[in-house]
Design a protein around this nucleic acid. Structure first.
Lengths: 231, 231
DNA sequence: ACCGTATTTGAGGAAATCGTCAGAAATGGC
DNA sequence: GCCATTTCTGACGATTTCCTCAAATACGGT
């Protein structure tokens, strides 16, 4: 048993370090979401509630920090989407569900959303983004004959661009019904992918589980919304 | 005649002022295209080859300058697209031509292109962007029955997002054939807009005039590519 | 040619930002 | 409890950046 205790003890330090790093990343995400990327380092560390020197313990430049912040947000988004669609067979249904739920997330988790939008375009083709996942889904749909597109990559460009523009629209037009808009956009994308208008409409009328519950379930705590705790 | 001479003379000053402003905007566009938006003002003015103080004669903040730079690029792009489609009747053809040519512009005028991409997402719904123009075209297509979409705004979101993602893809993948990619993406967007696969493919196989010639014709000089003249 | 106005210019003091480093605090092993 | 190691911290000198302002230049009218 002393082994286990020792092992647990040995990791206290690492955890402390990881927490400091996480605090910095959270602060960076908040700033990224506000579009304020050229703030003094001191402001970042104060937002993260860590000492100014800690920044340099973890990152060399601001750009490096922001990069890590985006990557972290992407991993979260990717994990969530995976969890939500892992049991579904029909590729069109997988695609539609990812798309419809993503649209709704933009409203429910504006911070996560804005972080991704801030670097969005560059991420569509990037290795680390959600692009590869989407491309995989599109190709699967083509293989099973559910989709019908000449060039999967072109389809990815449209779908990726549409996903980003949808997120931006959800932010810019809070007066619009985000669920409705998400579903109409998804419908259009499915038509682009070769579904008939009827099929596309049908797939997009499926009732959806509550995004809030799904999020809570997939990632308890979410550590998103700025919650500095007691001042 | 002295009137005309006087009038011409009276504007010398204004022209000089306008030139200084234009030089600043060109420099800002170059920086925007390189993604370097947090450079010292001195670097901007040196790139523009004007005195450091001149910056403050024309703008209060860097952000203001960059905004003007984007707006200027948008006006150019808008004017060019208008000129290229003003004689065409079929809304699908107008749309396809705008889209296909826009894709090609990203390769031929990377700087203009990157300036727009740098603020792209925010511009889709914005008043000043190309969004209103696209929405107008979409609605026209719906009215004439050529397009068939439930909600024009959703269609705009997809088309706008696709246009931006296409531009980004053209930059990120110089090894791909930009014309081919543009045409395939356009085809997908047209399918989303309700055209049959056959119609969409047909509209996208029309031969196109050379982008280079069209650009030269629409806006002689273009004043884009950094051309500082003799050092 | 001369003067009033508009515009440009860059030097320079004020302010902001950086990034190091020595010491403090926490951790781990004994 | 004690020392070695890791991490955190913020004060401080060096550097960068800002932006005002007085002088220089170009222009327009007479």
């Amino acid at each position: 048993m002393s082994d286990a205790v020792a092992a647990a003890a040995r990791k206290r330090g690492e955890r402390r370090r990881a927490q400091t790093r996480a605090a910095l990343i959270r602060a960076a995400q908040q700033l990224l979401a506000e579009g304020r990327t050229s703030v003094p380092i001191l402001e970042i560390t104060e937002l993260a509630d860590v000492g100014m020197g800690s920044f340099y313990n973890h990152f060399d430049t601001k750009e490096e920090l922001f990069e890590a912040a985006v990557e972290s947000a992407l991993e979260l988004q990717g994990a969530v989407l995976d969890a939500w669609t892992k049991d579904i067979e029909d590729p069109a249904e997988v695609f539609a569900r990812s798309f419809r739920l993503t649209g709704r997330i933009h409203r429910v988790e504006p911070q996560l959303s804005r972080v991704i939008l801030s670097r969005g375009l560059e991420l569509i083709s990037s290795e680390h983004g959600l692009g590869p996942r989407a491309l995989r889904d599109i190709e699967r749909g083509c293989d099973t004959g559910r989709f019908n597109v000449a060039d999967p990559y072109s389809a990815l460009v449209i779908a990726g661009g549409a996903a980003l523009a949808l997120g931006q629209a959800v932010h810019d037009h809070p007066e619009r019904d985000d669920a409705e808009l998400s579903d109409r956009v998804t419908e259009g994308v499915l038509r682009m992918l070769g579904l008939t208008a009827e099929d596309a409409a049908a797939v997009c009328s499926t009732p959806l589980p509550s995004v809030t519950e799904l999020l809570e379930e997939a990632m308890p705590g979410l550590q998103q919304s700025a919650d500095p705790g007691p001042a």
